[in-house]
Design a protein around this nucleic acid. Structure first.
Length: 431
RNA sequence: UGGGAUGUAGCCAAAUCGGUAAGGCGUCCGGCUGUUAACCGGAAGAUUGCAGGUUCAAGUCCUGCCGUCCCAGCCA
């Protein structure tokens, strides 16, 4: 009878038993008489120990495989203080499934260009696997939280006939014969339609921006969560963003301690993410910047401005009531002061910057019509959108949350390119 | 797109005032019975991004091109 297959994550539950681990050879150390085979399987890393005297033939075979060869190691599970992770396998059988020679990635010292060019292999390393496991937890926590809050998932189209917001640059694609289509930069307008059908909805998919950004906070393809709620206000959107972020961070703290450790993330910074989050108006934020960054009142906040505003804060900061000039055409104006748009940005602490942007949407048909004209947007493309105000318009609000920025923040990543499996950047579309 | 850096072996990286290419990882050979990115000894591996220029002499100085990184704008 062959040994049962066990995930490395669950090994400590099988002490004394003989089990098999299916994985890849992460590293091999040892001497003429002793091999330490470090095997990874996606759930963890364990070392298998082979002693020459025990079984000469097995010892010989086990010493042949190169780094990242796929292997099945069988052995008895031992708790041993000397083993990394405290558990190891005493090798009783070894099989190489697929050989690997001259694996390109070493165990240390690589530059970002080299690593990104080998992203398909880099994915196997400790940092990427830890990051991707946390990304998975974050996605799951988001969907769970929204499900519990009564949201329905309604996906938006990727091909769109126009610029959703009419601001940023779009990727253009041929759409049969002589029609052009664009890759979506946001599903929000479609979510507004869906919210008027289902009440509380969200979409969670890729978004595309053709801006030639070259910063550590931008990708040309990224994933965005966009909840939208009918009969809701700016306040409701803020409450949701706050509870969602707290739930997500809490879930990662529950499920990914080891991964956070691998990433050397300061966990105390995440444990501080407990509601309520501070809320200030644009005017107050601007006052903080006075004589600090050269910021001009009325402008949007730049990266240095955000850093200065959030300096010393240990929670995300919600900034509301923006000059309507810096926000999108569909933003509702503050009924008490027409200068302000009822928008909210959420700025993550520790300098990670904006992770959420949203607010309350304009409901008045005539107002939106004038906004389209003022922003020079083609009315025929937005006819359907105006219909939403023509037939049973209600107050509604929502926001967009950048998944990779959230992952980068929670994981403590210096660059957003590590927060997505295969980053698409200005000059990088391979692999 | 603008500003600033940078390009040396498969990878990381040093080289003073211009003086004739360190070291480490990996690979190969040898050693080690508990390693933790193991360690010790030995070997192979470089038209110093490309094209020109200055000089007795250029990795080093100059010009152009290319690549990459960082910062900014745009935003999630």
């Amino acid at each position: 009878m062959s040994a049962p297959f066990v995930s490395i994550r669950n090994l400590q539950n099988h002490e004394g038993k003989t089990v098999a681990v299916r994985g890849w050879l992460y590293n091999r150390r040892g001497s003429k008489k002793l091999h330490f085979l470090q095997v990874r399987d996606g759930t963890g890393i364990v070392q298998a120990v082979a002693v020459k005297g025990d079984d000469e033939e097995l010892f010989e075979r086990a010493g042949q495989s190169g780094q990242e060869a796929s292997v099945v190691v069988t052995g008895s599970v031992k708790l041993d203080e000397r083993a990394p992770g405290g558990v190891e396998l005493k090798l009783t059988d070894f099989a190489e499934v697929g050989a690997a020679h001259d694996y390109p990635l070493g165990k240390k010292d690589h530059g970002p260009d080299f690593l990104l060019s080998h992203r398909h292999l880099w994915l196997r390393s400790r940092r990427p696997t830890a990051t991707l496991r946390i990304r998975d937890t974050i996605i799951r926590a988001i969907r769970n939280h929204l499900y519990q809050e009564g949201f329905a998932n309604v996906d938006a189209p990727m091909f769109t006939p126009n610029a959703c917001e009419g601001t940023t640059t779009l990727f253009e694609v041929d759409y049969f014969d002589d029609t052009k289509a664009y890759l979506t930069q946001s599903g929000q307008l479609y979510m507004e339609a869906a919210a008027l059908a289902l009440g509380k909805v969200y979409c969670f998919g890729p978004a595309f921006r053709a801006e030639k950004s070259k910063t550590r906070k931008h990708l040309t393809e990224f994933w965005m969560l966009e909840p939208e709620m009918a009969y809701a206000s700016l306040e409701d959107a803020m409450t949701l963003a706050e509870s969602l972020l707290a739930a997500v961070v809490g879930r990662v703290l529950e499920e990914n301690r080891t991964d956070l450790e691998t990433l050397e993330r300061d966990v105390s910074k995440l444990e501080a993410i407990v509601p309520p989050f501070p809320r200030i108006r644009y005017e107050e934020a601007a006052a903080i910047l006075k004589d600090k960054t050269g910021f001009k009142f009325g402008d949007d906040f730049g990266a240095p401005d955000e850093a200065a505003i959030t300096e010393g804060l240990d929670k995300p900061l919600l900034i509301t009531h923006w000059p309507h000039e810096v926000k999108a055409f569909y933003m509702k104006r503050d009924p008490e002061d027409d200068r302000w748009a009822l928008g909210v940005d959420v700025i993550a602490p520790e300098g990670f910057g904006e992770i959420v942007g949203g607010g309350e949407r304009a409901t008045d048909l005539a107002f939106l019509d004038s906004q389209l004209k003022a922003h020079d947007l083609p009315e025929e493309d937005f006819r359907w959108y105006l219909d939403l105000r023509r037939y049973g318009s209600v107050p509604h609000a929502g926001f967009g949350l950048g998944l990779e920025r959230t992952v980068a923040w929670i994981c403590g990543l210096q660059h957003i390119r590590e927060a997505i499996p295969f980053p698409r950047l200005l000059h990088r579309i391979y692999p």
